[in-house]
Design a protein around this nucleic acid. Structure first.
Ligand SMILES: [Zn+2]
Ligand SMILES: [Zn+2]
Ligand SMILES: [Zn+2]
Ligand SMILES: [Zn+2]
Lengths: 174, 174
DNA sequence: TCTTGACATGTTATAGTATAACATACATAG
DNA sequence: CTATGTATGTTATACTATAACATGTCAAGA
């Protein structure tokens, strides 16, 4: 049982976005997030069925984004359906219920590291190691809302993504 | 000859992002941007060949983003090649040379409304009328750089896109 | 002038991403 | 138990993008 030292929030653990780019006890991240996800699903009255839960676990294995077909391949190998809609439906469910994010730049999906918390994420994608961090971006979102408001535009959904080099890969001189 | 009243910058014309969502003299936008694009290409020593120029003109017809296959269909109807690479190559050229932008949320491309000017655009996409505005987003980009810097991440490219309702469509009660 | 090399275009073929439409299973409420 | 809604499975297809190769064009250099 990971992180028995606390039962709810875990400051500086899964919440720490820089962990995505550094060595860390990742079982802590994934265990923590998965527990929160289950709580959130129960709270919202939606069902985290076996496929859906398994897809979330797969996304949580690493701080990376996976394509739908990567996920599908994993599912198929584990006895679930092996046709695209199986993966897309589970992924869409996770996205719609705030348990995963779609990374448009990569045509891929990543687990949400802050399920249930109100957050306006920006995604930092390392082009060298492919790790993805969900950075807190409330100020970014605020600036975006402001720019939109200046034009009378009402934002409903937004995606903010950046490609570059993470600290580890910068050091390695990629 | 459009906009003969000025020879270089055109404050409040193509530069005005809110124009994308309102009635306006669009030939002014397109004529102005096309002229700037030609100047910029010459200045950068790259060739705005007939296909490339035509693709830019097509993108400039409206404040919308077009899919590669939409562009291709237009090209094919005008005697250019009718295979995907013809469109993708021209579009990639325009994007790489700062004459167009890729809108990832739509898998589509839009003409850059500020070619040659240093700008950090955010794209506002109306889900009702499909118009796309290239909003000035220097503060947004600055906030994003700041959030990334806090994690030691070096941004190279970014995309900032928002979906919602433009002022016109909000009024229409969409 | 002729050649050569760089670049642009054209074409064939295929890879990768996503969804429509229909069939089956399974739960829970009445 | 049976009707209803929801989840899953499956078939087929649509949409997006690129690899690889062939042909054409033009200008610099021999
Ligand atoms: Zn982790
Ligand atoms: Zn990295
Ligand atoms: Zn216009
Ligand atoms: Zn609109």
């Amino acid at each position: 049982m990971p992180h028995a030292h606390h039962s709810d929030a875990c400051p500086g653990c899964a919440a720490a976005p820089q962990a995505a780019f550094a060595r860390h006890d990742h079982s802590h991240c994934s265990g923590d997030v998965l527990a929160r996800a289950e709580a959130l699903a129960a709270e919202q009255g939606v069902k985290l069925t076996p496929v859906r839960r398994r897809v979330l676990e797969i996304l949580l294995e690493e701080h990376r984004a996976l394509g739908a077909y990567d996920v599908l391949q994993r599912l198929a190998g584990e006895g679930f359906g092996n046709q695209p809609p199986v993966a897309y439906r589970a992924l869409d469910f996770l996205v719609e219920n705030g348990l995963a994010h779609r990374i448009r730049r990569l045509n891929a999906f990543a687990a949400c590291m802050h399920p249930g918390e109100a957050h306006a994420p920006a995604f930092l994608i390392c082009r060298a190691c492919n790790h993805v961090a969900e950075a807190p971006a409330a100020p970014v979102r605020e600036a975006l809302d402001h720019a939109a408001a200046a034009l009378g535009f009402a934002i409903e959904r937004s995606n903010i993504e950046a490609l570059g080099l993470c600290p580890a890969c910068r050091g390695a001189g990629a």
